[in-house]
């Protein structure tokens, strides 16, 4: 029925392959930088939120506000509004490279909140025990918080990566490249639904694979 309405013969499989590869590259680098920025930010949010000192709590309020602002701006708007910033950072605002800064800026605060939540799940008693054993703050982060929250952190990375898949598709709107770009140019602008359908199927498969990998890792690290 579908094949009667949609002709798959005009799908350029070579171009589809390149677009898929572009999407994978975008995902890889945006996830990487999201982790690099989001993880320390999440740890900082967690540590400052429960500190006794007034300075730390003030820092928490500021960080929390920035994170909330970045998280509440719709990705499409964020992506377009930071084009000048993107050009300064990576020299271009299009293609795989040009799409990475907006992806990271959108995903890092999101991931930081997931990190903060995971760290909150760590039993306070275990932190207390480490403190009683003379652990420094750095040791508590590195030897208690991160290992204890590993399953939660891995689940957070999975959620963030899957969210980034849909963001990469959206970045096609401003010439970001990849599968989303392909789907919009061919499927929407040239009325070739076949390309759009194939692009979407590839995206679904990608998400499915990522989720399976993430679930497996979470299971491997769960010792409770």
């Amino acid at each position: 029925m579908l094949s009667a309405a949609v002709d798959f013969s005009n799908v350029d499989w070579n171009e589809m392959g390149i677009a898929t590869w572009d999407t994978v590259r975008m995902l890889f680098f945006s996830t990487l930088f999201t982790m690099i920025i989001g993880l320390p930010l999440g740890i900082l949010l967690f540590m400052t939120s429960r500190s006794d000192s007034n300075g730390s709590r003030a820092l928490y309020s500021v960080l929390s506000l920035i994170v909330n602002i970045l998280r509440s701006v719709p990705f499409v708007i964020l992506m377009i509004s930071i084009i000048p910033f993107t050009k300064i950072v990576v020299g271009t605002s299009i293609g795989v490279i040009g799409s990475i800064p907006p992806l990271v800026i959108a995903a890092a605060p999101f991931f930081a909140r997931l990190v903060e939540t995971s760290l909150r799940e760590v039993d306070r008693g275990v932190i207390e025990a480490a403190t009683a054993m003379g652990a420094s703050k750095g040791q508590i982060v590195g030897k208690v918080l991160l290992p204890e929250s590993m399953p939660g952190l891995l689940a957070g990375i999975t959620i963030t990566t899957v969210t980034l898949v849909s963001y990469t598709a959206m970045s096609g709107l401003i010439g970001g490249g990849g599968l989303g770009d392909l789907a919009i140019r061919y499927g929407y602008q040239r009325y070739e639904p076949s390309v759009m359908i194939v692009s979407v199927i590839v995206l679904v498969v990608l998400v499915q694979l990522l989720q399976m990998l993430g679930d497996r890792l979470v299971l491997k690290f769960s010792k409770k």
């Binding site: 039993d123 008693g125 025990a129 403190t131 054993m133 003379g134 208690v144």
Partner: peptide
């Protein structure tokens, strides 16, 4: 804080809910 960490190592502590690292 640093000196206190040193002193704490001379005091062991055990807890009602054990407070062991579940990942270790």
């Amino acid at each position: 804080e640093k000196e206190l960490q040193h002193v704490r190592r001379k005091m062991g502590m055990i807890f009602q809910h054990f407070n062991l690292l579940s990942s270790a």
